[in-house]
């Protein structure tokens, strides 16, 4: 999400380095750092505490994402709710998917839907009181910042006006860094629907920006 953000651990559980390694009861074995998400989830079937490793891996990433959409106050509980729901549904996780991010984003998205009014208000509030707007910083940057901020406020307004389904797709791509296929999997919709929703959302966002910043590049 953020270039400096909590990247996911891209490790693959592959051939063991030492084939003769002792067999340890998986009930007591510490979760190996190298296990992929599916492996952790599978272990959590018998050893529920293993699931906490998934929290350690992705709670920061989800918090950042949710804080963007709902603000920091709601984000904390929502991340907790997401992991609790994921934990409760861990037996339904398809273990053939080594990466659990789409699954977790999908659960978070569903829970966020309950807060859709709050989300729209969160964006609209930006137009009135910028969170870290152009008020701080050296004077020359403030001037440049004002224009940028104005376009952001327009953008936030456009986001607030988007239908929820379109916004979910747009933000999972732009802020969640999911691929189209991953968004499809997260939301349980066909990839074609992801594309059409994304196109529609992009058009509206472009239109909103076009009013403020005509030099904005076409995608």
């Amino acid at each position: 999400m953020n270039p400096g953000g909590p990247g996911r651990q891209d490790t693959v559980d592959n051939e063991p380095a030492t084939p003769g390694k002792a067999v340890v009861s998986t009930m007591t074995a510490p979760p190996a750092v190298t296990a992929d998400d599916a492996e952790l989830i599978r272990r959590s079937h018998d050893d529920p505490e293993t699931f906490a490793a998934l929290f350690d891996r992705y709670s920061g990433m989800l918090y950042r994402y949710v804080s963007r959409r709902l603000g920091p106050e709601t984000a904390e509980d929502l991340v907790g709710d997401t992991f609790l729901a994921a934990f409760g549904g861990r037996h339904r996780y398809d273990l053939s998917h080594p990466d659990a991010r789409p699954w977790l984003f999908g659960i978070a998205t569903k829970i966020m839907a309950r807060h859709h009014r709050r989300e729209a208000a969160h964006y609209r509030a930006l137009r009135r009181s910028p969170v870290d707007g152009p008020d701080d910083g050296p004077a020359d940057r403030v001037a440049a910042g004002v224009a940028a901020w104005e376009s952001r406020a327009e953008l936030a307004g456009a986001l607030a006006a988007l239908p929820r389904r379109d916004r979910d797709v747009l933000l999972l791509v732009a802020w969640g860094d999911l691929s189209y296929e991953e968004v499809a999997s997260a939301l349980s919709i066909p990839v074609g629907t992801v594309r059409s929703r994304l196109n529609r959302a992009r058009r509206k966002v472009r239109a909103a920006l076009g009013g403020v910043d005509p030099t904005a590049e076409e995608g």
Binding site: M1, Y63, E76, L126, V205, D213, E217
Partner: peptide, 20 residues
């Protein structure tokens, strides 16, 4: 065309608090 949107996202983002 998603770049302005990504900028907005970064501006809105908060770091996970210890209370997480």
């Amino acid at each position: 065309d998603l770049s302005p949107l990504r900028d907005l996202g970064r501006a809105l983002e908060h770091d996970p608090p210890p209370s997480l």
